[in-house]
Design a protein around this nucleic acid. Structure first.
Lengths: 184, 184
DNA sequence: CAATAATTTCTGAAAATACAGAACTTGCTG
DNA sequence: CAGCAAGTTCTGTATTTTCAGAAATTATTG
């Protein structure tokens, strides 16, 4: 297991970005390398290629598995566990989206819901609750969209992909549509 | 400046979440408090209410300003600077989205573009570049959508908001639409 | 049921980050 | 231009996070 300069550059870059995506540098590097590798990798490959300790690799693999980003591969006659990326790049994006919603958005939503059930006890809280309501609504909306993406059949996803930045056009049309037929 | 338990709970929660959104705990707390406050706050208010040092508040305010999340208010006859949240909650979301794209997605895209210009020098790189191409396309697509959101007039945004989880339906319709008129 | 290969968990050191408080700068006001 | 209030930057400490390597555990094979 050795990395070409190209691959190395991407792996390191992804490691740096990793922290933004909710995991640390080495976990980011590990994932990047697994994604770019045609053949499954085992813990030793990762430890060696990235020069990180065997123990650290073990932790990292568990972390990636908790995000459901890995596919485990068994090679007959070999005791080691091998890993590849679970699913396509698009699947990866979906997984990360889903997981981040669960970890970041859901707890906030539940706190907000609880708070909004309480009666504001003074003017300060009246205003604060208005704002919390707005945040709540926004988060819920985003959650709704995310859900829709997650449960969308591949055919629709493709439409969405192809639409790309044509989204605006579609909405323009939808505007007219709802004007004409206000029944839904 | 004193916080009610409700407000305090949200402020602390947002502080914890903050790290996920790209800034640290105290910056998160500061922003939450500013958003929930009807009246502009000055550095001392924040320092006092959140029990963090004056110096730290100064750093935090600069950080929030670099995200363009604050609106500065001057009170005549008062030397202090006061701050409120810049724009609506929706504006806030847009700003964060925009800024994160700039900080997280754009650098990766530019790295990928550069790498994909190079010719793969062996099979390993052929496969890696395929994957990088997929990642590149996905990121570019997301970037495109984000752009569209950012440049969307409020009227369209409202449509989008109202649509909520009705997105799926619209796409179904679009599917049929493109089947009938394949000219774009 | 040893022998050993593979993996996980633990422990403490190292590095990075966050923060308080002091020192410093800026700019107003008389 | 002295005096002071507000704001910023610096410095060292505390906290948190990351990680290597050792120790322990689990699994596999003869």
């Amino acid at each position: 297991m050795t990395m070409t300069p190209q691959i190395e550059a991407f792996v390191y870059h992804f490691g740096e970005m990793g922290s933004r995506w909710g995991f640390n540098r080495t976990v980011g590097q590990m994932y990047a390398l697994i994604v770019l590798s045609e053949h499954p990798l085992c813990a030793n490959d990762l430890s060696e290629a990235l020069k990180i300790s065997r123990g650290n690799v073990s932790m990292g693999l568990k972390e990636l598995q908790s995000w459901r980003l890995l596919q485990e591969k068994r090679v007959p006659g070999d005791r080691k566990e091998y890993f590849t990326a679970a699913g396509s790049i698009w699947d990866m994006a979906i997984r990360v989206l889903e997981e981040r919603r669960r970890r970041e958005v859901d707890p906030t939503l539940s706190l907000l819901r609880d708070t909004l059930l309480e009666k504001p006890s003074n003017d300060q809280e009246v205003y604060a609750q208005e704002k919390m309501q707005e945040i709540h609504d926004l988060l819920e909306l985003c959650g709704g969209w995310a859900d829709e993406l997650l449960t969308m059949p591949p055919s629709k996803l493709k439409t969405l992909m192809k639409l790309g930045s044509g989204m605006g056009k579609v909405l323009e049309f939808t505007d007219k549509l709802t004007l004409r037929s206000p029944d839904t």
